[in-house]
Structure formats: C-alpha cells, structure tokens
Design a protein around this nucleic acid. Sequence first.
DNA 1: GCTGCAATAT
DNA 2: TATATTGCAG
Length: 383
Amino acid sequence: MIKSLSNMKNYNEKREKCCEYIEALEEERRKINVFQRELPLCLELVTQAIEAYKKEISGTTTDTLYGQPECSEQTTGECGPVLDLFLPIKQSSTSTDEEEEEEEEEVDEDDDVEHESHDTGIDFVDKNMKSEWLKSVQLWNQPEAVPVNKLERSQQETQTVVEPIKENCNGAWSNQPPCYEMSNEKNDYIMSLATTSGGSGRQKTEAERGGSGGSGGSSSGRGQRKQRRCWSHELHRRFLNALKQLGGPHVATPKQIRELMKVDGLTNDEVKSHLQKYRLHTRRPSQTIPNNRDSQTQHFVVVGGIWVPQASHSKARAVASRETTTGIYGPMVSPLPSEWPSHSNFGREISERSRCSSKGIVRCSSPAMSSSTRTKTKDTKMS
DNA sequence: GCTGCAATAT
DNA sequence: TATATTGCAG
C-alpha cells in the first residue's frame, strides 16, 4: 500500500517534470522553427523529444513509469539522450545570443550523439538525418537566396527570392548587413554566429567598399584589413555572366566585369582578386583528382572563353562537383553553367581562346603567367 | 587609374 | 588548404 502510494507520488512528480520538459522543449522548438531549414535535425529531434514525453505522460506509459525508476533523467529510455541534448538549451535560453550559440553547439553535439548513442532509440534519427543535415549545411553555403547586395532589381530575374539569406562562406561572414537582405531573425542569428565563431571576430562592417583606397583604418590600428567579401554563388554567377559577355576571363578586365555585374559595393579590387583566382583555377591543372578525368574532359566546352560543362552532362557536373566541394568553387546549382573551368581542359581552352581573339586582343595564352613572362607580355603589348 | 601578379592574411 | 585582401610594378 505504502509502496503504491509512494509510487503514485513518484509518478506525479515525474509527470510534472515531463510537463516541464515538454514546455521547455516546445519553447525550444518554436525558436528552432525559425531556422528550420538550417536546423532541420534539431527541429526533428526536439519534436521527437516532445513526442516521447507526451507519450510518457499519456496513459500508455504510465505503467512504465511505475515500473521504471527514472525515465527522464537517465539515458536509458528513448527520451534520455534527447533530454541530455536539449536540457542545456533550456537553461540558457534567455538571451538570444546564447541560444544561438547553443543551437550551433547542438549541431556538434549531434555528431557526438551519433557516436555515443548507438544503443538508444534516437540513434536512427541521427543516422538517417545525417545526410539531410549535411545537405542542409551545404544549402547554407549556397545562395538559393540571393546574398548579393542591392542587386539592381531588374537582375533579380530568375529568383523570386526575397528569402532571407545566409551568406556564409568558409566561416568568413560576408559583409555589411545593410547590403544583404536578410530577415532580422536570421540576420541576428548569423551575426551572432559571426561574432561567436571567430574568436578574433570580424571587425565591424567597414564603411567603404567601392573605394578600396584609404586604408580602412576605422578602429584598431592602421590598415585594418578589409572585411572579406564572400563570393556567393549568386555573385559568382554574375561574375561568370559578365565574363561570358566580355569574352572570357582573359579578355575581361576587372573594371568591365564589375560594371557588368552591377553589384552594389563591389570593388574593382574584389573583382580583380576573384578574377585572378578564377584564372588561376583555370590554368592550374589539378592533379588531385585521380579518377576519370578523361571522361570529364570530354564533357566541357568553351563558351565565350569560359569552360562550362556540356549541357545535359550530369556526369561532368558530378565530376566537377567532386572536384571542388567547398565554397563557390563547389558544385553550383544554378541556371547557368557556372562551374570553374576544368583544369584538365585548360590546354584546350587556351588554344580555343587564342583562336578567338575577339576585339583583336591577343593575350598571352597563359592567363596567369609568371612575373617573368608577364614582363615579356607587357613588352609585347607595348610593341 | 587600371591591371596583373605575388605576398600575405584569414 | 582555399579564398580574400593588399602591395607593388608596369
């Protein structure tokens, strides 16, 4: 009798606790919901946790509760790991910054959980969703949402995207909030990530952009380095577009490209830098991709001096995507053929290019020549 | 001022 | 290591 009474009491306590957890989790879910695209896994996990608790509370699990000493607090039940994951969040969910940090950490924790909880019920969730999550991370780096600054409206052609964007590339947060259209919440989120992640933290948005001269020199010491411009896919797409129009990377000049890109705040320097890199990528034969480059070589064509995968050749795309997996050099899902040129084809590209010297401009076939060759070229130009 | 390359920073 | 910025020379 006494035993059953104490059991009853115990049950009530647990029930109460579960309710608390559920509330907390639901609150958490609401927050995560804002980032459901970025944190699908989190959302899913929280949802599952909530469901688990609800089950527990509901009659079906009553006996289990009676029978089992501690469900919620232990990692034995299916809810255990979930709780472990999410309880900390609740604790510090007062400030948004903290919260966002937490969410980021969760991501990491997810991995841990995956390793540690193989015997738990929640394991499969992680396993199955891992890829999803990774996909989502990729998305995060991709610009389905246009990060481009105040792109002139007319050019918003393909994208009806007003969707807020995250402009995250390789940990470097792209610049100036004013230039990017983001929802406030996400913007905050991103900004907080930006400040949290990079210990030294990116300095505030620099004012200029468009006037590279002037040594920034805002706050700390002299010559504060300009904030890195992150070349989103969209930007890169425009870049390529411009290249195409101008007749290829080796004909186009930074200024022309910039003008064609029509991106607010984009500087010549930035374009120049990007162009340089682009040319380098164009030139440098990549030895790091061992597998069937041969087949790949056949699937690229030169269009306006730009190497693009031959239309309809998904294989080529696949290879290309294997070739470069990060950042904008990675696979780009875009209406335009915008991959970096295939290195293995560069020779062909060169010959093509030298053949099609529009504008009568004949440049050195090698885009990025050594300084020695460079002087030579300049001499050639002179004469 | 524009351009390209190399060095340097992140 | 990849990518962006800066410096310098032509």
